[in-house]
Simulated scan of single mutants.
Amino acid sequence: MLNTTDSVYSQVVPVEYPKVGEAPSPVRIGVITVAGGGLRWMNIPGDPRQHYLPRMEWSGTNELVVQQLDRKQQESKLIYCKTTDGSAATFWAENDEAWVDLNTDNPVGWNWVNKGQDFLWVSEKDGWRHIYKISRDGKTVTLLTKGNYDIGKIVSVDEGSNYVYFTASPASATQLHLYRVRINNGKDDPEQVSPSSLKGTHQYQISPGGKLARHSFSNYNTPPVTEWVSLPDHKPLNSGKSIANNLKTTAMPNVEYVKLTTQDNIVLDAWINKPTNFDPSKKYPVVFYVYGEPAATTIDDSYGNHSNFLYNGDMAADGYVQVALDNRGSPALKGAAWRKSIYRKIGDINIRDMGGRTARDSANAQAKKLKGPGVERGNLNEGGDV
């Protein structure tokens, strides 16, 4: 870490990252009034060297709400801390044999509703990533996004209209759409807000109050296009600049989304990108793009997702068949069991889903499943993280 503020010259400050078996740096929370006075530490239970505090915020006068994870990240607790005396009390907890996911890339705090009497919380406690409404004392828990599907993330809370907006794609894990569901008195199923005619990946930035949104869309043969829309009717503010009037598709007849079944009878999403001017009477080498880890998917239905960034050139123009798939353990919206099956099995589950004992075995095994003429199965290379 660089210290660029304490002197004219920058100073390097070593930051130790704990090795396996060693205790990480302890974390604790202290509060001091802006008017001055003594520092009061919060008496959060548990060894601070064996727990993490990934998020906190003010939850009331002289009160903090804190999330605590144990070091294995298999237990999550929500705790109220009184800043007047430092006392702490747990009001909500959940456990998972693999890990409790934070379900956000930016754990900034809580979505309080109903004048602070409830909050919205994303949890995988029933096996799917769902939105729950939880009472302030943690005693009343209401599932809002009912069904066997995952949400992507909460996009906006429009409490004035009694709705929470979120991304999901129950029909296809390779796509993403905008949905909304009632916060209170929710008896109806979530409703899709994105146009059903646009199959692919939708992204939204919604204004405070939930009345306006910047909407972006793309899929495998549609370059990104953006519009401003009103909500919840999803009408363009300027028809001349709408996606409907500016959408242009690119002819990509050689890109195909397919499903492959593994030796364990697991169905995987995959895509095939055949060479430019593909001739089924000819034989082409196959490049199998391998990732297979929990950080990212590779089969999203979005523009530009079908080329190998590691290759210095145009693989399609150079005559290669390109293939990629998402195995178990990838962060696809296919349920917690899918994502967490890789727990303590990295290099096992992912390689097995690809069809072999090694990355090369896997690539060859899946290449054999590619149906159709023109694929030279004996001439295969893999690229990516192996």
Rank of each mutant, 00 (worst) to 15 (best):
V8L: 06
E97C: 04
V323Q: 05
K153Q: 06
D158V: 12
K371I: 02
E94I: 07
V12F: 13
T33G: 09
W338G: 09
D158Q: 13
L102C: 01
H234I: 07
P24G: 09
G374M: 08
L178I: 05
R352G: 01
I154L: 04
N221E: 05
F278D: 06
M42R: 12
K235W: 02
L178H: 07
R357I: 04
P18W: 09
A168C: 08
Y320H: 08
F166W: 10
L64R: 14
V287S: 13
W99E: 12
T297V: 13
P45F: 07
V287I: 15
K115M: 03
T297P: 02
G335F: 09
F278N: 09
L2H: 11
P107V: 04
N114Y: 00
S156D: 08
F309Y: 12
Y284K: 13
N305H: 04
G329F: 00
P373Y: 10
T261H: 06
G116F: 02
T250K: 15
Q117G: 12
I183L: 15
K77D: 04
I346F: 01
R357F: 03
F91K: 14
R360C: 01
A251H: 12
G347N: 11
A168E: 06
T140D: 13
T174D: 05
V290I: 15
D269L: 02
N62C: 03
L176F: 00
E75N: 12
I154N: 02
E382W: 13
V323E: 03
N364I: 11
I351P: 00
N265H: 10
Y257R: 14
A296T: 10
K187H: 03
K82T: 00
P275H: 11
D96Y: 07
A173H: 09
S10L: 00
Q263M: 08
N381Q: 15
N184D: 09
K235V: 08
A173Y: 03
T142M: 09
D101L: 14
L370S: 02
D150Y: 04
E191W: 07
K146N: 08
W99G: 09
T90S: 04
V287K: 15
C81N: 06
W271F: 13
N305E: 03
K274N: 10
R339H: 10
Y284Q: 11
A173G: 07
T249W: 01
E124V: 08
V27P: 01
D279F: 09
T358F: 06
E191F: 05
T226R: 14
T90Q: 12
G210R: 13
T298H: 05
V229T: 06
R129P: 00
V375T: 14
F166A: 12
L260T: 06
G209V: 13
Q366S: 08
L212R: 15
L247I: 00
G292A: 11
Y311G: 10
V181H: 06
L143D: 08
G30S: 10
